[in-house]
Every structure is written in structure tokens, then in C-alpha cells.
């Protein structure tokens, strides 16, 4: 038996697949957004609001869950293209699963595709899905200390959306403190406090997404995410 030195990162193959998907989406002019958060943070509610508000932007949604199709059904009811992905017990989406889901749903005719990742603040942050942008949600009831507990996801995300701001008066959530903690981990992170229920703060988030879409289409491909 011979010894073969590999020195190969276990996730190298996933990284290559992610890079290929990113390049393909760049050419197609479609911005794939990896949306990450804990369960119950309001991902689907936020997406529903974005679909309703951003009428000129054609949005598709890939809903990743361990079971059920409740989220995809909610999105489809709004007239947007959606697909439900079952991860087969896995706690995150990887680039292979994302590429397969996208093949199934089809991105032609779309501007923005959201990959609603499995509700979890840990594993999704570690896997490159091939998305052109990473967006994370932290909801007010979860608490402003989450950047201290789950630093990686805050470091990895391009933007942080603080949802359920209409409930701020019921919780001890300090937006300034949360902002300071997140910025300490990732000085470039953009922060948008919103309420998908009342519409507060939604316009700023929508302008930000439109800006990122334009940049994704106009800037030359650099083999990495648009920062």
C-alpha cells in the first residue's frame, strides 16, 4: 500500500462548486442571496414583504427546511416563484444542494433569488453556497447579545436585518449595543432595523438590495462576492 499526501481541505470541492455557481449567476445577471437566521426570526415574513413592496424586482425563493412545504406555499401564494428544498436532516445548505435546487427552480427571468437557509446560526455560516451576497436576520426577541455568542455568522454576513422592531418596547433589545457588537466583528456589515409588519425601515433595506443587484450586474467578476 502506498501513501498519498493530499493536503486537501475537506470543503475544497464545495468551494469550487460554489465558485462555479457564483460565476454562472454573475453571467446570468441574477443575484443569489444566502439568507440565514435562527428558526422563527421572520425570514418568510420578511421575504413576503419584500416581494409585495419590490414590485419591479422579480424575486424567486428557495426554501430550505428539514421537512414540510409550509414556507414555499406562503411565498407561492404571493405569486412569486418558489421551491421547497428538503435537506434530508442536514443542518445547512451546501453549494451542491443549492446548485441542484436552482436547476430545479430555474433562474431565468428573475432578478433576485433568495436561498432561505435552514434556521440555524452556526452551520450555514460555515458553508459557501455560491451566493453572491450573505444576509442575516436577528429578530428583537432573540436578544442583542447574539453577536457575542455566534460571532462567525456576523463576520460572514454582508448585511444584518434586525426584524420585529415593532416589538422593541416589549423586549430589552438595545439596537445601539447590537450595532456596536456586530460592527466590532465585521466593520463592513450594513445594519437595517425593520418591521415587516408595520413597514418601518423596509424602504432603506429595499434600496440597499436594489443597489447590490445593480452592483452585481455592473461590476466585473472578481472571483469573489461583491463586498
Amino acid at each position: 500500500m502506498k501513501i498519498i499526501e493530499l493536503g486537501k481541505n475537506v470543503l475544497a470541492a464545495n468551494g469550487a462548486e460554489a465558485e462555479a455557481l457564483r460565476e454562472r449567476m454573475k453571467k446570468a445577471g441574477v443575484l443569489l442571496v444566502n439568507l440565514m437566521s435562527s428558526p422563527g426570526s421572520g425570514k418568510t415574513t420578511l421575504l413576503s414583504r419584500l416581494i409585495r413592496d419590490m414590485g419591479d424586482t422579480r424575486i424567486g425563493v428557495m426554501e430550505a427546511d428539514i421537512e414540510s412545504a409550509v414556507d414555499a406555499e406562503r411565498i407561492e401564494a404571493l405569486g412569486a416563484r418558489a421551491i421547497q428544498v428538503h435537506t434530508g436532516g442536514m443542518c445547512h445548505m451546501d453549494a451542491y444542494m443549492t446548485a441542484e435546487a436552482l436547476r430545479e427552480m430555474g433562474e431565468e427571468g428573475l432578478d433576485l433569488v433568495f436561498l432561505e437557509n435552514v434556521g440555524n446560526l452556526i452551520c450555514p455560516a460555515e458553508y459557501d453556497t455560491g451566493a453572491g451576497m450573505k444576509l442575516m436576520i436577528l429578530s428583537v426577541p432573540e436578544g442583542d447579545d447574539k453577536p457575542l455568542k455566534y460571532p462567525l455568522i456576523f463576520r460572514e454576513s454582508d448585511a444584518l436585518v434586525i426584524t420585529k422592531c415593532d416589538a422593541l418596547s416589549y423586549f430589552d433589545f438595545d439596537i445601539a449595543k447590537c450595532r456596536e457588537r456586530a460592527k466590532k466583528l465585521n466593520p463592513a456589515i450594513e445594519i437595517y432595523p425593520v418591521s415587516a409588519k408595520t413597514g418601518e425601515g423596509m424602504e432603506a433595506l429595499e434600496r440597499f438590495l436594489e443597489g447590490r443587484l445593480t452592483a452585481w450586474r455592473e461590476l466585473p467578476y472578481r472571483g469573489d462576492r461583491v463586498k
Binding site: M1, K2, I4, E5, L6, G7, K8, N9, L11, G15
Partner: peptide, 28 residues
Amino acid sequence: NECIIKEIEAESEDGEEGESSFETEDLN
């Protein structure tokens, strides 16, 4: 933060003993 396949011991079809290696990739 690594997870790297350092080396494997293997038998090949032709039974050759040649050593081969890949570039180290770090995607962490």
C-alpha cells in the same frame, strides 16, 4: 479551524508505488 485530509494509504490498479500530491487548498 482546519479540516484537512493530510494523507491516505491506498492500493492502485497498476500496483505502482508512485507518490503524488495535490496543491494545498485553504478555503477556511
